[in-house]
Design a protein around this nucleic acid. Structure first.
Lengths: 198, 198
DNA sequence: CGTTGAGTTCATCAGTTGATGAGTTTTTCG
DNA sequence: CGAAAAACTCATCAACTGATGAACTCAACG
């Protein structure tokens, strides 16, 4: 039935090199400031080819974010162990992701979410549905406190990522991961399982 | 000596309305995405007039940021009281500033710092020289730990501001200030004066 | 009045952006 | 080979950006 002639859609890697360049550009400059021309440039490709593959800048961004780190694998590592260590393990896994290649996608998402409403929505939904919900539903905290505890954790984690990878405030920007685990772990632990009132 | 003729430089408020519009625009969209045309539009003014008053977009930004909240007055309010309450007082004062008119300048600075290197430098220097240094030098902590403690505080405070005013993650975005003071205060207290190792 | 100078507007420039559509090259298969 | 389809390029559009400089308006002063 279907026509089966012509050049095979299988790519010699051009598509991937565009995605790499896009991730780097979005991470460095944010969604709005990153230009398709610059992305095509560092990928060694005509700008129109980017549109040919991805249609629009929005779709390119989504494809570039589509996700180098799988929360489904990460969350169990946070939960594996005693309940009192979940805070430290969360910070440790979190820092590991941001220091990995997947981190550039995170920086891109973070940078973009700040001046672009639809990427902010993306970040919000990723945080709530992919990360916080999964962790918190395994910790049998009182359900009414769940959203507050979750978003408090988010304030500390996003603040940490902002200072370490975006604003780059020293010494947090270059600190040894385990130093930060020891310092920030207890904070996350208290937000998750501790008392929140004075 | 000086010529003293012509229309008086005293303004019918046009300059201020431009600054107000600029603060709002920078807060809502960040430095790059905010356009002089849009600012002039909401101020009810010709775009060229903005250049006439402020020269360039950079100078307009600096003028708009120039500063609705004075750290010199705020820091004493954080320090006034017992050493064990400094964390809660810091969060309380911090939230107060962000919920005031001065907060829009803060949001503008924060939004802009993310996709613009020179505004990031501005934010960094403001955090370190105007806020953290002043607070920490009054708390006689061990000098070697001072930078780390300071930047840890910054991660939590900036993360809080990000989630509450930029990403607007609920319920932190709409939470009662005192709820956040009770929840986050102990974190800041520990970063300032507590133990940082496991 | 008439000059002065600040307040204000208009027209316009040069640069960059995302996007489009027609056209060319290259690979694969019958 | 020769047709088909994908990979890729070129020229170009319309929109928007920050910025400039000449011009017009109007209040204050001598």
């Amino acid at each position: 039935m279907t026509r089966r002639t012509g050049r095979r859609p299988g790519n010699p890697g051009t598509r991937e090199s565009i995605l790499d360049a896009a991730r780097a550009a979005f991470a460095e400059r944010g969604f709005d400031a990153a230009s398709i021309r610059a992305i095509a440039g560092t990928a060694g490709v005509d700008p129109a080819l980017v549109h040919h593959y991805f249609g629009s800048k929005d779709q390119l961004f989504l494809a570039a974010m589509n996700f180098p780190a799988d929360p489904g694998q990460l969350v169990p590592r946070v939960l594996a162990g005693d309940r009192d260590g979940v805070g430290e393990r969360m910070v440790r896994v979190f820092l590991g992701v941001w220091d990995s290649p997947a981190g550039s996608a995170g920086v891109a998402l973070l940078r973009s979410a700040v001046s672009n409403e639809w990427t902010a929505r993306l970040l919000r939904e990723f945080i709530t549905t992919q990360v916080l919900r999964r962790v918190l539903e395994q910790l049998d905290v009182e359900p009414a406190q769940l959203p507050l505890r979750g978003s408090l954790v988010a304030t500390q984690m996003i603040g940490l990522a902002m200072m370490r990878h975006v604003v780059r405030l020293e010494p947090v920007a270059s600190a040894d991961p385990e130093t930060l685990v020891a310092a920030v772990g207890p904070t996350v632990q208290r937000y998750l399982t501790g008392s929140l009132s004075a």
